[in-house]
Nucleic acid binder design. Sequence first.
DNA 1: GCGCTATCTTAGCGTTGTTCAAATAAGAAA
DNA 2: TTTCTTATTTGAACAACGCTAAGATAGCGC
Lengths: 207, 207
Amino acid sequence: MRESEVPESRPYHHGDLRRALVEAACRLLEKEGAQALSLRAVAREAGVSPAAPYHHFKDKSELLDAVAHEGWEKLDLAFQAARDAHTSPPDRVRELGVAYVCFASQHPDLYRVMYDCSRDKADMPAHVLENEESAYRRVREVLISAGADPSDEIGLELATIACWCAAHGLAEMTSFKQFEPLKEALGGEEAFLRGVLAHVGVFAKGL
Amino acid sequence: MRESEVPESRPYHHGDLRRALVEAACRLLEKEGAQALSLRAVAREAGVSPAAPYHHFKDKSELLDAVAHEGWEKLDLAFQAARDAHTSPPDRVRELGVAYVCFASQHPDLYRVMYDCSRDKADMPAHVLENEESAYRRVREVLISAGADPSDEIGLELATIACWCAAHGLAEMTSFKQFEPLKEALGGEEAFLRGVLAHVGVFAKGL
DNA sequence: GCGCTATCTTAGCGTTGTTCAAATAAGAAA
DNA sequence: TTTCTTATTTGAACAACGCTAAGATAGCGC
């Protein structure tokens, strides 16, 4: 093994190309936007041939899946911060929603990749649904602590889904030009988000 | 002119190629899905050369805009039907939401094109916002007739936006696999939709 | 008849996703 | 050590894409 760990001329075998590709994709996503995120561009950004990624990902969508997974983990961090920043359960519900939409607003291209992956597979992201520590569970638990009846399994699930729908819808619409004046009138985007979410039952009063 | 060079059904100059292209695109969208909707495929479906569309649309996105416009008009018809099918204002609010999501559920690829166009331009579709007879206005008016204070301009707008967000979010998520069991438990997709929307304040009680 | 202009086609450029055989490096076996 | 084996990476190639340019065609006014 050469001592030059990160030399100018990369060694023939990349240390962890899979990881490097995902990072290159994220970098490209912030720099050039979702439209510029081609497999070849990612390979270029990682300094590797166009065919190299195929030894680590079956196809382009699998690379995007990995990027999306990274995104959901980042979102999860934002969720934890929002939860820990408030003690009152109703506040927590609302602020979880605000944190969700703010994340999407700050990383619009990443969020787009994240949801495109979910939609293409008609699948809630695994990290969101299956994991014990998932964001979905987190919303559910905050709803319970805010007064939702834990024995009403169906009602609880419907409420949780309603949260997701409102948050996702708002996340995709908050950047629309037509809302600019309203945001200004309310004194910023966050006030706007809270204003909208206040009309969603589960966000307004924790069920 | 060689008359049998080209099928007799179409002379060298197409009657209304612009229209034919939009229709071909819609046909292709239902038949093959959004992924297969390339400009060249649309030209092929319309029986025309790959370069022909460029005399009627600046680029591909402009063709998609036309397709999306068609979509919003179709949705508007569904809206009118839902509105006319109910007299009670609260029912109307809820059923507008159900009609919206059902439309998206029945034409998923068209709906995707519709919203992708809006998002790319950070623009609520013109047909939705600017027109007097627009769907946006329609929601707004039903909210007023359901008891919303018409003098509270900001509150009214926030409520209308909340409606759109919940409906759009649900429209994009209702096809997720994970919701199948819940739909069955509730006896169908429409019941599921009503169940979710019931947790959105504006849909639940007309503000 | 004449020309003008909009429309449509053919040909071609650069890019993309993907495959495949060949080249290379790293590790195990000898 | 040398050799064999396997995992990576490359270069070349293919089909399809969006788009442009230059030429062919047809309808319309003169």
